[in-house]
Each structure stands twice: as C-alpha cells, then as structure tokens.
Design a protein around this nucleic acid. Sequence first.
DNA 1: AAAGGGCTCAACCGCACATTG
DNA 2: TCAATGTGCGGTTGAGCCCTT
Length: 360
Amino acid sequence: MGRAPCCDKASVKKGPWSPEEDAKLKEFIEKFGTGGNWIALPQKAGLKRCGKSCRLRWLNYLRPNIRHGEFSDEEDRIICSLYANIGSRWSVIAAQLPGRTDNDIKNYWNTKLKKKLLTMVPSLQQKQTFFPSPTFQPPPYDHHAPDHFLTTSSSFYTYTPNFINVDSTSNSLPVHDINHINVAADISSPHPPSANNLISLMRSDTTIDVNDNCNNYLGFPDDPHTMCNTYYAASGMKEGMLMFGSTACSSSEGGSSLSHVSHVNYNKDHHQYHHQKNQYQIKQEVDHQMTLHDQVLGDQIQTQSLMVNQKPKEFMFTNHVSPLHNDLEEVKLNLNGYLFHDGDGSKTTHYQKGMCSYFY
DNA sequence: AAAGGGCTCAACCGCACATTG
DNA sequence: TCAATGTGCGGTTGAGCCCTT
C-alpha cells in the first residue's frame, strides 16, 4: 500500500500562482509564521493549495531577501566548484549563495552554466555522457577485502588505495589491469605553471584538451584543480567521480603539503551522502607520509591535506572489487599541476607533474 | 505575419529521511 | 519498534516566451 497523499488532489489548485494567492500566503506567513505545519497552512490561510505547493512558493519566490536575475562570475565559480565536489546537492550549494534558491541554481546549471562550460570545451559536447557509462553499476564496497588501508563509514563505493612503486621517469602510464586505478605522480621537479600543460583528458582514442580556453576559464585559470573539477562538472559527471581537489583546504601539520587531495569515489545515493560522514585514512609504507581526511559534516565540506614529506611519489589505487568488465572504458587524466602550500598557511604554488588513469 | 522549434523557469512529483505518537 | 505523518530534496515537466525561418 502506498502512502496517503499529502492533500486532496481533487480540491487543490495547481499551476501558476496568482498575485492574490501570493499576497494571501505572504500576509499569512508574515503574521503567523508557518506554524511548523505546512500541510495545515493553506486551509488556515484560505488558500486552495497543497501545503507543499505553499512551502515551495514561499521558499522559492515570496520569502524575503530572495535574489533573482543574473548570476555573477563569482557565483558561477562557486557553483562549478561545489558541483564538481559534491554533485547536484543544490540545497547545499544554495546555502553558499545567499539569496539564491536551490531551484534557481538547479535551473541555472541545467539551462545555462553547463552549456557555458561546454562551449568553452567544445569537444566535450560529443562526450557528455562518458562518465560513468550507462551500464556501469559499481559493486558495494568490500570491507573485508585483504590489505586495504582505507576505512569508511559512508555509503560510498570507494576504491581502496594500495601503494606500489612504479617507474616515475616513464611518461607512459603504468597499466596493470582493468581492475586497477593507477595514479603516478612525479612531484620531484617543480616547474613553472604553463597554460599549455595543465590538464588534458583522454577517453579511448579521443584527446580533449581544455587548455585552449584556460585563460578564459571562468576567471580562475591559475587554479588547475578547480579547472579540473569544473571540467568534470562540465562533462556531466556526477558519479564515479575522480576528483583532484576541493574548495577548502586546511593547513598541514608542517612541511610541504599537497593542498589538494585525490580520491575516487562513487556516489551511490545523493540523499544518503548528505548525511554521511566520510573519513579516509591512507597510510603509506614507502618513505612518504600521506594522510588524507575527507570529511563531510552536515553542510560543511572540508578537505584536509594530502601530506607528502618527500619526493617522488608513485602510487596506485587498487580496487578490490571489480567493476563490470563488459563495458570497459578508459579515462586517462594527465594532471600537470598540483597546488602546494606551506605548513604555516602561507600559500606557495608549485606546479608538478602527475597523471592517472581510471578504468571502469 | 505565422509557424515551429528551442529555451526558461515555476511548479509538480515521488522518494527518502525525520519526527511523532 | 513501528506506522503514520510532515518535511526537504532532486529530477522532471510543461506553459509561455523568444528566436529563427
């Protein structure tokens, strides 16, 4: 048996709100508040509307300090960055943009911002759905898999990191098998940032170079990680996201630290994500220290440092549970910019090489 | 001027979670 | 503990507007 409807559908009005209805609702709420019960409100206010409809109308249109109209570049940047990090959690994104509603942001993203980004990266238009593949169904995270370092309390499908040595001098990607995610990062020789080598991403035999537009990339060409995340956002990725970076980074415990983290996760259920706290801890047996914490606490998202005391670092993420093999795709990410900052919080930027690939 | 195709965005729908009794 | 109910959220829809032909 399904649940009872929230109101008598036959006797409630639907469709656009008239100015009279708006005035009634506004006046009632300003006088009496919502009374903590939206379902009962329309009857009290003399409206032939469903309570949910009243709530929506109030929240999205009538309540004070709502802002409509053009989004600023700064708002664009925030939306892109948050979307890349947390996906379509519009209410969380809206919380960062005073006066904007989740509905507005959702509409703006779907109708304008996504297209705007795709225009900047024209080749993406042919590859909008490449991540994840429609048939890809990640298996549940296997907590009992051997030799994994990662612990998580989330509902995420999360790849278990494991570290091995790979040839850091090689330009070729170390490919082991389709169940592995390989990440090879050479951080031993900083070189100046270059507009031409920030990020490129390939799928199968297709190369997509987003750097053509990097000088105009929503005004933050100097942050390759934001670009990277934004790039994912533009490509329509919401799940199976391979992320480099975050919108917020804390200082490290000393020494140089990689201020952005790399992790791979699968967002199985956005609803659950909102309430989950994720904590990863990666230990490293080689001569580097690496700690990664990624916490989602309520609406606060914090990504702490991936600490690297020393140079060359090569590691590989291995997932112990195999994705489906019959829909193998490959995404390679060539990441030539890592943003570092010093332990005292004063930011020092180095650009270093890195690359990874993701198979599923 | 008319047709029609695309776009926008307010509103609806269904689902999941939270709360209450 | 469980069912009923309320709330919040994200995905989707469709009326109306705009632009192109």
